[in-house]
Design a protein around this nucleic acid. Sequence first.
DNA 1: AATAGGTTCAACCGCGAGTGA
DNA 2: ATCACTCGCGGTTGAACCTAT
Length: 263
Amino acid sequence: MRKGSGCDENGLKKGAWTEDEDMKLTAYIKRYGHWNWSLLPKFAGVSRSGKSCRLRWMNYLRPNMKHGNFTEEEDNVIISLHNKLGNKWSTIASKLPGRSDNEIKNRWNTHLKKRVKHDQTMSGSENTRTVEPDQPSPEVNPVVETDVEFQQEDGMLFPGQSESPSSSSSTDLLSCWFSGIDSAGSSDLTPQTFDDEMVGDFWTDSFIPDIKDSSIVLGDNLWSPFNQDHDYMYQSSCLDMLMTDEYLWPTFDTYVKDNEEIN
DNA sequence: AATAGGTTCAACCGCGAGTGA
DNA sequence: ATCACTCGCGGTTGAACCTAT
């Protein structure tokens, strides 16, 4: 087992996650989303901190996550973006569907940093300027900049295409959202993508009161927050609860299904 | 086969930003 | 204005794994 297995002073488990814990966390989030990380572990039945649950979900359990085997294209994207942004791992990760910031950070530290350093050394005789691999370059790095061009599409950059100044209209985004498939064929649309686009009650009004008096029968160790009279539930909007990531639709479907069963 | 040293990567930690009371 | 709390980010750690000797 990796990294200090055991429990902390609060009795919360630390170290590597077990299959059972993964299953519990995944099952819970699939059904109810991650409405509050600090309370979620209790409801999901795992003895972990909310922080640990969030990390596990974001880095490993989220759907469509890729693991290992970075492609040459992905490497080039990371190098190019790191050259522009520096250690903004989450920003870089947002441009690489299926990759977590942690994974990209590890990739950079274990492989790409050396590669860039090596490339710079190789080109050093022609170009005397030195760039610290960990720092963003104030100008374009001649070694890597020509490797990749990007096109911004729904907040994501894809290699091998030129940047387009125009973005998708809100109508397009909405139709993609409602069809459950975005125009890039990716399911990685984030709430942030819609921050300036979304208006209307559906996205901001709480839907919880509709089911607050209902008791949802759950199997296994899943506890629903919906049958607890906690104030935080009534403060949570649909947006908070469900528009968390690519799990929006399965979660919303589950909600609708649960509600139908209740009624 | 044993083992020392290097590498990888999942997970932990601390901090700052944002938010609401 | 202040406090409490959550969330997310980036740096760091350390056990497992790999490779060279």
